[in-house]
Design a protein around this nucleic acid. Structure first.
Lengths: 167, 167
DNA sequence: TCAAAAATGTAGCCTTGGCAACAAAATTGA
DNA sequence: TCAATTTTGTTGCCAAGGCTACATTTTTGA
């Protein structure tokens, strides 16, 4: 037949193919949904990292300045400016030219949530036996991809395996 | 540092500031390094997801076609084409116009590693009490941000808490 | 006070990863 | 065989996030 490689020339390595053609369509959706979910989380990632950092700087210094954000995020001040403009547009921060950056109530709320989640992830990894330095690195990337259900599971684990407030 | 943040208008909410001014510089680097680390992982994320999916499709159908990738990744076929061009450029896949996509040895190696890691993360979350559907969603995002050390910790946990080969 | 330094803003460029719309090739089925 | 359908390719658009280089404002310190 002409369909040539659609049917794989000669089906050498597809033993399971004819076994379950039905579930395929559903699995397609499942997988696509998972990636969509990740892409979604991705979009909020930067905003969350920034508001968290801004909240931190405000707690430390009373204000968050572009130069400190640049140092702490590890990017140029031009990038900071662009990102802050987006956060401003999205109602998470307020800022005036040549002045420090502050959080809106919405930004503060997001920062609180993120910090709480971050701490749980970090402490969870530590309780699991990961070295704090590594836990710190991993938590930064992982925290944005943890569903509420998984976060609850982390907390359960902490309650059983961590002697309350260790850092 | 003589800088301005010192004056902060009137230091209202910075009680801990003077307590440890020394560690700040180091923490800046630490934090920046963590974000750099996450950005790095980010760049490899798409490549890893694609080669993993391509390997899956080849295992199922003997080949990976654009239309199937689009369905499974949840993006348009135009996006698939662009991404495949990048993967080709980076030596991870081989493809010819209007023909299926295959992995280079390097791509296959990456796919193997990713699948192994993905499975560990998925099973770990399940062992922790997370529902499989949720574990599936979270694993897709989390797997790219797990260091080798943390992965080992996951495996240790699995060895103790999972009855061998459960799915 | 005022020049130098630091901080901030802006412009232009780049890559990634999305999309829709249209073009072309391949496959299918009558 | 060959027209309709499906698949693939291409083009142009967009936003996010990076960067450098240069312009402007603020702050510092002599």
């Amino acid at each position: 037949m002409k369909k040539s490689e659609s049917q794989v020339t000669q089906k050498p390595a597809e033993p399971s193919k004819s076994l379950r053609p039905r579930k395929k369509a559903l699995l397609d959706l499942d997988r696509a949904a998972a990636f969509e979910y990740v892409r979604q989380a991705h979009q909020e990632e930067t905003a969350q990292d920034y508001v968290e950092m801004i909240a931190d700087l405000i707690a430390q210094h009373g204000e968050a300045r572009v130069v400190d954000l640049a140092k702490n995020m590890g990017v140029s001040h031009a990038t900071i400016n662009k990102t802050i403009a987006r956060l401003n547009r999205d109602g998470l921060v307020v800022n005036r030219p040549y002045r420090a950056i502050f959080l809106t109530p919405e930004g503060e709320s997001m920062a609180r949530d993120c910090k709480a989640r971050h701490d749980i992830v970090f402490r969870f990894l530590c309780a699991l036996g990961v070295k704090p330095a590594t836990a710190h690195l991993d938590a930064e990337g992982v925290e944005h991809h943890i569903s509420p259900e998984t976060l609850k599971a982390f907390e359960r684990f902490l309650k059983k395996n961590a002697p309350a407030g260790n850092t």
